[in-house]
Amino acid sequence: MSTVQVVFTLNGAAVSLDLDPAERLLDTLRYRLGLTGTKEGCGEGECGACTVYLDGLPVNSCLVPTYQVRGARVESVEAIAAERLGPFLAQGATQCGACTPGVVMTALWIGAHPELLETHTIRELMAGNLCRCTGYDGIVDAVSTALGHGEPPV
């Protein structure tokens, strides 16, 4: 199998890897780099459990070949400061936790872009992250509690 060298910035540090150009960013993070906070829920971009930031935008890392992130900036849930997560704990935004890292990534990104709420509801903006446990109220409540600061997620 031929490999290619891919250099990118991950959670603020430079990474250089030789890998199969078709390898998914999700697998690179989880199995090559041991960053298992990013979860696989469906493997086809439906559930959002594998959400990471690619150059500051939330993407499903199961749909991104790692080759595509060369020269780019990637942040995973491991880059998120725990102090930011108080509202999620208080509102019951996590139950089983399998969707949670992806939910956190999308939620903090919404928090960083309060202008989105002029045209969209939180429920619309969170619709790319499936959760089977909470019924979404805890998540939506946590996002609205954490909103309005315009703080960057990382």
């Binding site: 906070g37 979860k39 849930v77 491991e78 999620f88 936790g97 890292p101």
Partner: peptide, 9 residues
């Protein structure tokens, strides 16, 4: 175990 789940740990 909420914080461990939220941080992906």
């Amino acid at each position: 175990e909420g914080l461990a789940k939220l941080t992906g740990r």
